[in-house]
Lab assay of single mutants.
Amino acid sequence: PPDDERKKAEKAARSGNEEKAREILERLGYSEDEARELAKRLR
């Protein structure tokens, strides 16, 4: 489910793995720019 994926992205971002967070968010349908912004904010 998307919620689980989003949680994974948050966890990745918090542990400093912004790249992985961005990949997950892009898979969820965010654009590259949106995903980058979100990954930064989740950190």
Rank of each mutant, 00 (worst) to 15 (best):
Ser31Gln: 05
Glu34Asn: 04
Lys40His: 14
Lys20Trp: 11
Ala21Arg: 05
Glu37His: 07
Lys20Phe: 11
Ala9Phe: 03
Gly29Val: 00
Glu23Leu: 09
Arg41Asn: 12
Glu32Leu: 01
Lys20Asp: 06
Gly29Trp: 00
Glu37Lys: 08
Glu10Ala: 14
Ala9Gly: 05
Ile24Pro: 01
Glu10Ile: 14
Asp4Gln: 12
Leu28Met: 14
Arg27Leu: 11
Asp4Asn: 11
Ala35Trp: 04
Glu10Lys: 10
Leu25Ile: 01
Pro2Ser: 11
Lys8Thr: 10
Ala39Phe: 00
Glu19Val: 13
Ala13Ser: 04
Ser31Glu: 05
Arg36Asp: 08
Glu34Gln: 08
Ala13Pro: 03
Arg43Tyr: 14
Ala35Thr: 06
Lys40Ala: 10
Glu18Asn: 05
Ala12Val: 08
Asp4Ile: 14
Arg14Tyr: 05
Leu38Trp: 00
Arg22Asn: 03
Glu18Tyr: 11
Glu37Pro: 00
Ala12Gly: 04
Ser31Ile: 01
Glu10Phe: 03
Pro2Lys: 13
Pro1Arg: 14
Lys20Glu: 14
Leu28Thr: 01
Glu26Thr: 09
Gly16Asp: 07
Ala13Leu: 06
Pro2Gln: 13
Glu18Trp: 10
Arg22Glu: 02
Arg14Glu: 07
Gly16Asn: 05
Lys40Gly: 11
Ser15Ile: 08
Arg27Asp: 06
Glu34Val: 05
Glu34Ile: 06
Leu28His: 01
Pro2Tyr: 14
Ser31Ala: 05
Arg36Pro: 01
Arg22Lys: 08
Arg6Ser: 07
Leu38Pro: 00
Pro2Gly: 13
Arg14Leu: 09
Glu26Phe: 00
Ala35Ser: 08
Gly29Thr: 00
Glu5His: 07
Ala21Pro: 02
Arg27Glu: 06
Gly16Ile: 05
Glu37Met: 07
Glu32Gln: 07
Glu18Leu: 15
Lys7His: 11
Ala21Gly: 03
Ala35Asp: 02
Glu32Lys: 09
Pro1Phe: 14
Leu38Arg: 02
Ala9Leu: 06
Ala13Asn: 03
Arg22His: 03
Ala9Asn: 02
Ile24Asp: 01
Lys20Met: 13
Asn17His: 09
Asp4Tyr: 12
Lys8Asn: 12
Ile24Val: 03
Glu5Val: 11
Glu26Lys: 12
Arg22Ala: 08
Glu23Gln: 13
Leu42Met: 15
Glu23Asn: 07
Lys7Ile: 10
Ile24Leu: 08
Lys7Phe: 08
Ala9Thr: 03
Glu32Gly: 02
Arg27Tyr: 08
